[in-house]
Amino acid sequence: MDEQERLIDMQDVSVRYPNGTEALKKLNLHIKKGEFLFVVGSSGSGKSTFIKTLLGELPVASGSVSVSGRRLDKMKRREIPYYRRSLGVVFQEFRLLDDRNIFENIALAQEILGVHRLRIKRNVGMMLEMVGLQGKAGAFPQELSGGEQQRAAIARAMVNRPGILLADEPTGNLDPDNSWEIMKLLEEMNRLGTTVIVVTHNNEVVDKMKKRVVVLKNGNLVSDEEQGGYIQ
């Protein structure tokens, strides 16, 4: 792979928790701009650690991680918020703020960037339409279904137009129909140019979508296939 094509470049990356557990062991992984990638593996395989490392939540013990040309392993604490603005994140439990309506939840990501109120209104409106939640702007998270809440979370993750979307078990709390809807939405984001990385347990989704699949086991990368399937 040409070095310039690499959006995410992980070389010999090891990550250790304070108790000494090595959750990622000399991981080598290269992700191109515009790719759609599944990261699968059983519990304790290092999937969550992989996401947390890319989010800058865990320090890299050894090796190097480069994201969009920025060295994550050398990044100072104060630089991390600015780095995270280049990412969109979606979680299994949606993580919307219950005391704010859907518009305010999505607008928060733009408020952090200091975007003007009128532009926020326009951008949030566009995102709501994109994820099919037009007319739900004033609703509170608890008034929406799980699928709708995850759509709102995707809208929040994407409203700042990040280059990378990280999704940690995005269908974990959804029924099969809603899971498919969410995956279609992520595929749509990918089609529009965003690099999408999905950590999942959902074998059905992985097998059907025929995307690149990276398998982790005990912190090691055991398989990396273009159009792969789910392997435990």
Binding site: R85, I112, R156, N160
Partner: peptide, 8 residues
Amino acid sequence: IMQHIGAT
């Protein structure tokens, strides 16, 4: 959540 979406 705010930390994850890039709040300083």
